[in-house]
Every structure is written in structure tokens, then in C-alpha cells.
Design a protein around this nucleic acid. Structure first.
Lengths: 218, 218
DNA sequence: TAGATTGTTAATCGATTAACAATC
DNA sequence: TAGATTGTTAATCGATTAACAATC
């Protein structure tokens, strides 16, 4: 495998899509695929796909294409599936609860160890088998268990503070669902945010363009 | 205002962030801000901010900077806040329910009109005041009401089919939360996806780099 | 072998950054 | 006015696309 000196974020953002599409192809029983066929189904150029994969070394065979299951495995390994990543959830409100109950963490190599909240109504109970502890116990839990990621589904007012606590207690990444751009107290902690509001506003912009084109264009 | 001949997606993705940061500044009582100060707090260069805003015409004053409330209003207008956009939710499982209950649609100019499901247990009830109708009534509802966006929080198996129905019934945009890349049957319908799994995998990649750097680099 | 398709370098395109005149 | 900061063009940088030799 070629060493990845520096992979651009554009490539990193496409990797999960490759993984998803390859999984679907695999389930559909497709054994091999060419860069042009994959590109066509994903809306990318064949050149871009080969260039992306070239960042990590070639996984294909000249004259043949790519073996779907092999390429899926390779992309999965690049993404860190199989490293046994673990995470905890902070905040078991509607959203936290929904993700705990629905998200198939194990399918992308994550194990959900615990959730934390401050409400006496939920502390001590379980959601989908996941124990809920009091937020006071966060640091002691993180000291006793290797936790790679903390998921933030707390109220916006608590976002920065809980993010700080996660980072200082040693997580490697923060998965932020609050509508607040938390600043990380540590250089070595990565923050990845899912901003519903940003997404819907981008959609709002795009559909607005179609409503009164003459107003915006020309 | 300058006419926006063609605004790149990179700029469009930054607009909601501008709006969010400007809202925070406004709440903090900040009246004016320079491109360099805003850039510093957002992690962008002053040049980029001026270039971005230049796509839509200048909203600042030379020698002074930008008036926070004015710029916020302008960015909001560009994003389509205030156009009275409406949406419906398809699927009232955990995630759909969580978003209906928590998301402040009105704060970004959206009005949630209705939800649709097929479960007899929920059809006919309300969530946070929003009526739930049977999915069979989707087309008649869309014919009777102007609905701009359909939010998809259905099981993955129903994603494409419900997306098709939304598009064919006349929505302008689909806000897709399913872990499936739906293909749109109509050119004029925009699909915006929120893929939790892609986001967590990107984070997984980034933290994996820090775990065994010698393994990946050099 | 001939055909297909990758790996990999080069060319192009677009986005970001720099620079500076305009002007508040 | 002098100082500050934008609007706007030019330069740079990086990402995408094109091309083609390598090779299965």
C-alpha cells in the first residue's frame, strides 16, 4: 500500500460514499467493477476515482477493474473500520435516544459503551441495552475505559462545556450534533459536526434559486 | 445587489455558517465586525470572507467593516429565510419524532405542516402539534398545500420509493436522512442528504490517523 | 494476441489567497 | 486628514480531468 503523505479532505469525504456504494454492490452480488462504471453510478468521473484510490495505492487490476469485496475491505480498513473504535453518548434526549436505538454502530466498526445524562429519570436505566450513567461519572468512566469518540446530543447551552470535558478526559474525537460550533481545547482532538440546520439552509438556498430565477440571475 | 451568476457549492456550504456565527455575534451584542475578525473566529481568511460576500455584492463599508445585523439579514435572505418555506416529514420513527420535537424549523424560516406514516398506532395523532396522516394521503395533501421540502426519515427500504413519490408530487427539495443515496426522478428536485454514517466514518478515519501515525505516514 | 482498464504523470480548471486601489 | 477596511482584480494553490504507457 502506498503511504498517504497527505490526503485532502475532499478525498476523505468521498471515502465513506465509496464504502457505502461498494457495500450495496456487494449485496447485489456484483463481483467486479471498473472505475468508469462505479463513477457513473456515483456521479464521479472514472479519473477521479482512480486518482482517489491512488492516494492509498492501487487496489485494482489493469485490464480487469476492481474486485468489489476486496476494494470494500481496503476502503473500510482505510476508514478505520475494524480498529475496534468505541464511543459514548452525552445527552439522552430525543435525538440521543433515537440514535442510540437506531444507528447500527457495529456495522461501521464502532461499539457504543455507555450514555450519560443528568436527569434522575433516566440515570440508572438502559436504552437498547446501553447503560445510562450520571454525567458526574464521565471522567471516571473515561479513565477506566478506552473511549475513542464522544457523541454530543446535549442542549446547546451545555455543548462547549461537555465538549471540553470529553477532550480533557482523553477522547480522540467529538461527534457534535448540537447547533453550536464547539472550539476544541486540545489540538489532538478532532471535532466532526452534523449541523442539521446548515444542511436544511443549504437546501433552502438551492430551492430558492428555482423559485424566482429572474430575481437572482441576471 | 450583485447578480449571482454562479455560486460554487463551497460558498453555499459556508453561508449557513456565516448566518450562525452572525446570529451569535448579534446575540452577544456585537454591532460591527471586520472580515479579519470574523475570519479569525470562524477559521477562515479575511480574503475568503470578502470574496464569498462579493459573490452577492458588497454588504460592508470600506474603512468600517460589516454591520452584524445587516449582514445577517442579507445572508438570511440569500439563504431563503423569509420565503415561507414549508415541509412535511415522512416517517415518524425515533429519528423523525426527535426532529419534529426538537428542531426549531421556524428559526430558519420553515414551517412544518404535517407528518406521514403507515402505522395505525400513530396515524391520526399529533407530535408536538403536528398532525400525522397516513402515507396514502401524501399526494392529496401535496396537491392541496404548497410543500417545498419533504424530509425522509423512513426505513431504508422505503427511501427511494417515498423519494420518488415526493418528487413526482411536486416538492422542490428532499431532505434525506436515510443511509441511502436516493436518485431523483426529476431534474428540478434537489436532494440534500444527512448521512450520519458518512460523518462518523470520516471521524473514524481522522482519529485512526492519530492512533498509528507510523503505520500510515512514511 | 488484442482489448480493456488501471496506475500515474501532465494539463486544466476552479477555489483560495494576496494585493492594492477605492473610499468610508 | 490619516487610518482602516472593503471591493475587486491578479496570483497562487490545489483539486479535478485528461492522457497514455503499463499490464492484466
Amino acid at each position: 500500500m502506498k503511504r498517504n503523505t497527505k490526503v485532502s479532505t475532499a478525498v476523505i469525504r468521498r471515502l465513506p460514499r465509496y464504502y457505502r456504494h461498494l457495500s450495496e454492490l456487494q449485496e447485489a452480488g456484483v463481483v467486479r467493477i471498473s472505475s468508469s462504471a462505479l463513477g457513473k453510478s456515483m456521479g464521479l468521473t472514472a479519473s477521479q476515482i482512480r486518482q482517489d484510490l491512488f492516494c492509498f495505492g492501487g487496489f485494482g487490476q489493469q485490464g480487469y477493474g476492481y474486485k468489489v469485496d476486496l476494494l470494500k475491505e481496503e476502503v473500510g480498513e482505510i476508514l478505520g473500520i475494524g480498529r475496534g473504535h468505541t464511543l459514548v453518548v452525552l445527552g439522552t434526549g430525543n435525538l440521543g435516544r433515537a440514535i442510540i436505538q437506531n444507528f447500527r454502530f457495529s456495522s461501521i466498526g464502532f461499539q457504543l459503551l455507555a450514555a450519560f445524562d443528568i436527569s434522575p429519570a433516566v440515570v440508572g436505566t438502559r436504552i437498547a441495552g446501553v447503560p445510562i450513567y450520571h454525567a458526574d461519572q464521565l471522567e471516571s468512566f473515561l479513565a477506566a475505559n478506552r473511549v475513542d469518540v464522544g457523541m454530543l446530543t446535549v442542549p446547546i447551552a451545555a455543548a462547549q462545556r461537555m465538549g471540553d470535558r470529553l477532550a480533557n478526559a482523553g477522547v480522540k474525537g467529538i461527534w457534535n450534533f448540537t447547533n453550536y460550533e464547539i472550539t476544541c481545547p486540545r489540538e489532538d482532538v478532532v471535532v466532526e459536526s452534523v449541523h442539521f440546520s446548515d444542511s436544511l439552509l443549504a437546501l433552502s438556498y438551492m430551492i430558492s434559486q428555482r423559485e424566482n430565477p429572474e430575481e437572482e440571475y441576471q
